[in-house]
Amino acid sequence: MYPVHWLVWIDPHRRARKLLQFAEVEADGARDLFRAAEVVQDPILRRRFFAHARDEVRHASLFRTRGLALRRRLDRPGPDHVLGDGLLPGERGFDRLNVEAESMSALLAFIHLSERAASHSFAAYGAVLGHDPETRAVIQQIARDEEGHMRYSRVELSRVAPGQANRALWASRLRRLWRAYVRTALVMADMIARLILTLLYFLLLPPFALLARRAARKEPPGWHICNACRNDRTGGQY
């Protein structure tokens, strides 16, 4: 992956964009973790989640500050998001984590694996950022924190689910795989649906569009008789 990472991070536009996206991901992760701290009954876990969430807030701020600094040097910063952003596992944070619906062991296993993926990704990014020592310092600092999160979540997993930690981790790995497949399937489905609907648009709509334009000319702006007056006692859908 080294050449790919190098290609990704050598471009200053992409670098700034990625850092700002990471800031969003970390901020979302912080929200999920604060939520976990709110719903968990175990006081030790609550403190752990709270401390972890605060780290994520700090990370969001570090990424944002560095991302903005890079962005300010660009003449044309470009779009905030482009196709393919966030596809790597370590770049999606907790990936729409539904905290209330998870068991504590599943949640911890999920956090552990997410942090591990993030830690590996950030270590790899750090390795190709020799040309930008400031960004590398930020990423390496955060990668170290992610390792700490990896460790605490593994320790807590063993504490809350003694003897079942490995099972929880495997279940979580399978879920991550399944999610990755579903995500790909949905992206594909979305692309196919768009293609079909775009074809329909150009093949089917033109005559109707002509009629619609003609109808529009008959509707001048200004006041109209209320739609609600027509059939407001039927409770129907139209």
């Binding site: 979305d190 609907l197 648009y201 150009f202 709509l205 009629l211 334009r213 109808a215 529009a216």
Partner: peptide, 19 residues
Amino acid sequence: MTLLRGFPHSWRAFPKAMN
């Protein structure tokens, strides 16, 4: 109706809105 009136400029909006 809005998408029809916006034809052909509404071509990007149509798939998303219909979906």
